[in-house]
């Protein structure tokens, strides 16, 4: 579904991605692991069209989308749940959700999608007129995910959805990822919590210093000595 070929993205002269190759298959949950500064967020931003790659191609369903502006990529059906800057803080929960549907032109179904989001996340309905900035971290993450879903993505990109959240909330988020995947959503998720990721991911990539250094199934990953030590701890 998504093929990333030899992508190089640079901040000035410093190359954060030094030729990344990876692929996301339709209907699967693909997980990208890697230490801080490896280029995970840079890759997500590049796919989403926020950063422009210096070189390489990104093909989505056969079409090259590398270097296209973000709005065109959203229209193609790739939506990013960004890290940290999750919600429009001074807008209400409902306004945030509607913001997610901006790229859509089918006004009537937006309303029913909004109701579907409230059904999936009852918390958000209770708080629909509250300012998003007043929500807890977990609720903001839920809001960010449902806002992304409001765009009816074909591929959902998630940049460290568990960052800074309590273990119970993290479990919630991974439960949602699995639910979405069961409903047919393709998900590409950046995650540091490899143990949680093992429960949902169909395929793993490990990126270090701007390059993919491992590529395999969960089973292959669990057998890899280096990954076992660095990302899974000794218990496994």
């Amino acid at each position: 579904m998504l093929e990333v070929n030899d992508i190089v993205t640079a901040y000035g002269k410093i190359e954060a991605l030094k030729g990344v190759d990876l692929a996301v298959s339709q209907g699967q949950v693909t997980c990208l692991l890697g230490p801080n500064g490896a280029g995970k967020t840079t890759l997500m931003m590049t796919i989403a069209g926020i950063l422009r790659p210096k070189r390489g191609s990104i093909r989505f369903n056969g079409q090259d989308i590398a270097g296209k502006p973000a709005r065109m990529i959203v229209e193609q059906g790739i939506v990013l749940v960004p890290e940290n800057r999750l919600v429009f803080r001074d807008m209400t929960v409902e306004e945030n959700l509607m913001a997610g549907a901006f790229s859509r032109s089918d006004g009537k179904t937006v309303q029913s999608d909004l109701e579907a989001m409230y059904e999936r996340f009852p918390h958000l309905q209770e708080r629909s007129t509250q300012y998003a900035g007043t929500l807890s971290g977990g609720e903001q993450q839920m809001l960010a995910i449902s806002r992304a879903l409001m765009a009816r993505p074909r591929l959902l990109l998630m940049d460290e959805p568990s960052l800074g959240l309590a273990p119970l909330i993290v479990e919630d988020i991974f439960r949602i990822i699995r639910e979405l995947n069961d409903e047919g959503m393709t998900v590409f998720v950046v995650e540091q919590n490899a143990r949680m990721a093992l429960q949902v991911a169909d395929h793993f990539y490990l990126i270090e210093q701007g390059k993919v250094v491992f590529d395999g199934t969960p089973g292959e990953m669990e057998e890899d000595e280096v990954i076992k030590r660095a990302y899974l701890g000794k218990k496994i």
């Binding site: 926020i50 973000a70 803080r89 913001a99 901006f102």
Partner: peptide, 17 residues
């Protein structure tokens, strides 16, 4: 709504298309 989105966070607004 778009003006306010841009006012709050240009990058996040761009991500919404």
């Amino acid at each position: 709504a778009i003006f306010r989105m841009l006012g709050e966070d240009e990058l996040l607004a761009e991500m919404q298309g």
